[in-house]
Design a protein around this nucleic acid. Sequence first.
DNA 1: GCATCCC
DNA 2: GGGATGCAACGCACA
DNA 3: TGTGCG
Length: 486
Amino acid sequence: MPQHLDDRGRRERAHDAERRFSRIEPLLERVLTHAVRGSRIVDLRDTVSVSKARDAALAVAGREVAITNPGKVFFPGTGYTKLDLARYYAAVADGALRGISGRPIVLKRYVDGAAGEPFFQKRAPEQRPEWVETVELAFPSGRTAREIVVRDAAQLLWIVNLGCIDLNPHPVRADDLEHPDELRVDLDPGPGVGWDDVRRVTLVVRDVLDEHGLRGWPKTSGSRGMHVNVRIARRWSFDQVRRAALALAREVERRAPDLASSKWWKEERHGVFLDYNQNAKDRTVASAWSVRATHDARVSMPLEWDEVASCSPEDFTLVTAPARFRERGDASAGIDDAAGSLDGLLELSRSQEAAGLGDAPWPPHYRKQQDEPPRVAPSRQKIARTATERGGRRSTQPLITVAKAAHKPDALAGLERWKTRYPDAAGRLQEDDVLIDSMRGRSTTWTRIRINLRHVPEDARPREETPDPDYDPWSDAGPRRRAAPP
DNA sequence: GCATCCC
DNA sequence: GGGATGCAACGCACA
DNA sequence: TGTGCG
Ligand SMILES: [Mn+2]
Ligand SMILES: [Mn+2]
């Protein structure tokens, strides 16, 4: 359905029963739009009864999907409405679905439009049509959420009506939630870094991918950066995909040291940051053909490789993208035709490791990983080191928490189970190595048991695990942790 | 954006 | 009917 | 407790 909106907020629609209004107040337009769509006569003075206006409905994929508040301005400054957004997604549905189909999705909801404060929603709303699919997935913590899975245009428009502007799918499909089929190269230019540098780095990414047997599918992010998606066989874990992305980032940085950075800490970055951590489990990226919450409703646009050197991201918007889709199709249309192997990048990772480059920092909210370097910005670490050199006490005892419980006997039982699991370490513990603390919670008290492994040789120290039991003094019976496998 | 509570 | 309200992620590491 | 980071 063709539609043209100019940059002054005027709208004209050639087809469609909708008339042509110029420079009209959004509130009044809402009434008019509804009046026309509902084929009823409305007293134009009746602006008070706006709330009675009927919802719009779009017919897609054999269903009628309701769009509530269709006339609500979602992009102030351009005047594009929620209905404009829904129609955009209906027009490019085949492209947008290629990026999200079968994947659990995190809802980023802009219920007050692009200029409002968005919120994230992982758990599918309780109230939903039976034709909206969901899947239960586990976070790294073991907690779980039932997330929405979109496979057709009706399901897509249903989440658009919830206020989703950009779409944020996980890199896995619902039928295998532990093995990503997409490695995502996320190029984030730092403050003041221009589009030219983004393009140059993107082309280096292509070289490195190519030399490791992989095909990348570039797209503008719709914001200031670029994304290069890589379809891979579902054979590697999240951690492995992340390590492959880290290896790629470091190699790109090595080849373009003035333009690119693989460093997590902002104070160490320069130029374009290659965000390897976006491949960690439970992280998502805005998908192809997503509209972004920018003032001009920019779109994350798939590109041919020969367009990368010359394209301008501002050319792709909610208004211009449908024509490109009709005329040229989806530049990523072939992304599902072949799945690549991570072997090459993982070999690169091993060679980097041999050269002294191991794992790199993880984002906040993730448990400390084996072999992860200290997760602290170097500048803050230096301050501490200086304090220590001045005579401060070195505080690091090898303490691990083994049990947390509301009642002391439960915690002690957990300690006994730990001793049974690690008899060797338990045998080396000396007096005062087991610390039993009474902790003050919100309104009650609970017990924590920690073990000091100072008398256990370093290579014989058990890793810290999730405490058993793992009482959460903050929790009020929220979503529960998934039971550990037997 | 929507369910729910309440006037 | 409609206004007010609550709710809608991940949740650790480190100083 | 504040700050790290998307
Ligand atoms: Mn990005
Ligand atoms: Mn990023």
